[in-house]
Simulated scan of single mutants.
Amino acid sequence: MLGRAPLDALQSCETAPVNHAQLLFPDFSLIACGWLLCRFTALDRRVWDQVESLVYYFLFPVLLFHSIVRSPFDFAATSSMLGAGVAMSLCGVGLSYALPYLPWLGRYIDRADHAASAQVSFRFNSFICLALADRLAGPQGLLLIAVLIGVCVPLLNVAAVWPMARHAQTGFLRQLIRNPLIIATATGLLANVLGFRVPPWLEPTLSRIGAASLALGLMAAGAGMQFATLARAKVLATCVLSIRHLILPLMAFGLSRLLHLEPTQTSVLMAFSAVPTASSAYVLAARMGYNGPFVAGLVTLSTTLGVLSLPFALGVLR
């Protein structure tokens, strides 16, 4: 149930605005560290290839599972906001998929690059989501964002894998069954519904694995960056980042008004719509054999644009 406490927390937040640039700085600085280490030290691509495998097959799956099972879902109290979040995400998927087929844009878009980067349009950085929700509405905000993450992560991971599996003709179902991120989110949702809770003695270990996955995943993204590659696909980059940082916040604004969401739910939905794309997008593209450096560049630009889109969504629109 949503009581007076979340509203008080929201009013308190309005008198002490979130410093979005400060919140995003740790992620961006880790990406920069990875780039510097790979370019100017002995820790070259051979090292970071192994780091990517560790993050993709172990660290990120553990983090996703832990994030989903640690918060019980209350679907009845959050049904309107959950519906808005899912609808907004599906619209992002549809817009992203449609880009190569638009007559005035399709000829400028490489199909392989699009298959790898389509996910940038609709996936989200769950770590920044959690931090923002806590700052915006305290425990109630964390509960709301946990419901969104738990439902949208498996949905959007499936949507991320589909274009790459289809373009590579490797078999969509086989890619889903073998994808560790989808396996982790699906089992996490099942465990949550069944009432499974992580034992308290195991919580510190899983929390440290989660912290390691974030740090190493972002640094691996930085190590793979090649801005020259990004420059060769300016039209595609502009399109996917415009969907992520402009169109989705506008959709969230419209849905919040249409469904008459209360202030706390509106704030969480607006934050969800405007956060940077998932840092694991680069890892997924690289491990499936696509242009990882191009996606890493998009992740970097998305993290930078988040400094603008978050104040736009939470301040101007809201």
Rank of each mutant, 00 (worst) to 15 (best):
A115V: 04
A211I: 14
G106I: 07
M225T: 09
V295A: 06
R39T: 03
I177K: 14
S273K: 04
R107C: 12
S29Y: 05
N192R: 12
I247W: 02
L301W: 03
Q119G: 05
W201I: 11
V55E: 01
L95E: 03
Q119C: 09
L194H: 13
L181M: 10
L82H: 08
A231R: 15
A233W: 04
T303F: 00
M219G: 12
H245S: 00
G106Y: 06
P61W: 03
G34K: 00
A77C: 13
V120E: 01
E52L: 03
S126W: 08
G306F: 00
C152V: 14
S121A: 14
A77I: 08
I31Y: 02
V51G: 02
W162N: 10
A168I: 05
G85D: 05
P200I: 15
A115Y: 03
R318P: 00
S121N: 05
A112R: 12
T277S: 01
H245Y: 00
I243W: 05
N157V: 07
L317C: 08
A228N: 13
L37G: 01
G141H: 10
G85K: 03
T266R: 11
L259Q: 06
A184E: 08
R107N: 06
F124T: 03
L284R: 11
T304S: 10
F272N: 04
L30P: 00
P100W: 01
S121K: 05
H245G: 00
L194Q: 15
T238I: 12
H20G: 01
L310F: 00
R46W: 06
G292Q: 05
V299L: 02
L250C: 13
V18W: 04
L255N: 08
A98M: 08
S89R: 02
L23Q: 09
L7V: 08
S279T: 01
R174H: 15
A159K: 04
G315M: 04
S96A: 12
K234R: 15
L284F: 04
R39F: 02
A5Q: 11
V18D: 03
I145T: 11
T78P: 01
G289L: 11
R107F: 12
L37Q: 02
L255H: 10
S309P: 03
Q11F: 12
V161R: 07
D134P: 11
M251T: 13
P204S: 13
P103W: 09
A228G: 14
R123Y: 03
T41R: 00
P154S: 14
S79R: 11
D74R: 09
T277V: 02
Y97V: 10
G254A: 14
L2K: 07
L30F: 07
L99N: 06
G289W: 09
T185I: 09
S79M: 15
G171K: 15
Y56Q: 07
P293F: 04
L10K: 08
I209P: 07
Y57E: 00
L317W: 09
L181Q: 06
A112M: 11
S117G: 02
G150L: 06
F124V: 07
A186N: 10
V161K: 09
P26I: 06
R257H: 13
A252F: 02
I68G: 03
Y101E: 09
R135A: 15
V69E: 05
L259W: 07
L189N: 12
C13L: 15
E203S: 15
